[in-house]
Simulated scan of single mutants.
Amino acid sequence: MRRFVLCCLTVLILGMSCLWSPAAQASLQDDRFDGNIFALYAGNGSLVPPRMPLSQAIAEHRPSLLVFYLDDSRDCKQFASVVSQLQAPYGRVVEFIPVNADTVQGDRPQDPAEAGFYYQGVVPQVVVFDQQGKVRLNQTGLVAYDAIDDALRSVLDLPARSQTETTRPRILNEINTELVQ
C-alpha cells in the first residue's frame, strides 16, 4: 500500500510539473535557436532544403539567389521574411538557395561553383547570380528588399521599378508560433 501511494504521488508531482513548465517561445528579438527560421518567421518552409545546389544552377544557366543564414541569428530571423517575399514574384524563374552558414566549414572552396566560395563570414549574406554565373549583387546584413529586387530585375531584363507599378513587400504583422498537429 505504501508503494502504491508513493507511486501515485510521484505521478501526480511529475504531472503537475509539466503544467507549470514555461511554454516555448519563439522570438525575433534574440539569438536563440527556435527551429527553421523560414518556416517559423517567414511562413515558408519550402525554401529549405533548396531545390538544387549552386553548382547545378550555374551549370543549367539559371539565375540564382544565394542566402547564407543561421537559424540562431536575430538578423537572419528578421531577414527570412524578405527572402520569402522575394520568392513570390521570382520563385519560378530564380533558384533560391539558402545555405546554413554552419555547413560552410574549413578552408574556403576554390571552385566558384561552390556556395562556400562566396561566404564572407557574416550572416545574413545575399549573393545574386545571373544566367552565366556572374555575381550581380553581394551584400551582408539586413539587405533591403528593394536592393535585391533591383538586382533580380536587372538579371531578368525586367523594367526598373520606376517604370512599373510599385511592388511593395507585404507587412509581416503576425508570426505563427503554434505547433499544429
Rank of each mutant, 00 (worst) to 15 (best):
R92K: 15
E95A: 15
F96G: 02
F96M: 05
F96Q: 02
I97T: 02
P98A: 12
V99F: 01
V99I: 09
V99A: 06
N100D: 05
A101I: 08
A101P: 10
T103W: 01
V104P: 14
D107N: 12
R108G: 07
R108Y: 04
R108H: 02
R108T: 07
P109T: 05
Q110N: 09
D111Y: 06
P112Y: 14
P112M: 14
A113N: 11
E114I: 08
A115P: 12
A115Q: 05
G116N: 04
G116D: 02
G116R: 00
Q120W: 13
Q120P: 15
Q125E: 09
Q125H: 11
V126W: 01
V126P: 00
V127Q: 03
V127C: 07
V128G: 04
V128T: 07
Q131V: 10
Q131T: 15
Q132N: 09
Q132C: 06
G133K: 04
G133I: 12
G133L: 03
K134G: 13
L137G: 04
Q139S: 07
T140R: 06
G141T: 03
L142I: 07
V143F: 06
A144T: 11
A144Y: 09
Y145Q: 08
A147K: 08
A151K: 00
A151H: 04
A151Y: 01
A151E: 01
R153W: 02
L156R: 06
D157W: 13
P159C: 05
R161F: 01
S162W: 14
S162E: 10
Q163F: 11
T164D: 01
T164N: 03
E165D: 10
T166Q: 06
T167L: 12
R168N: 06
P169V: 09
L172G: 02
N173H: 13
N173W: 12
N173V: 14
N173E: 11
E174P: 13
I175G: 00
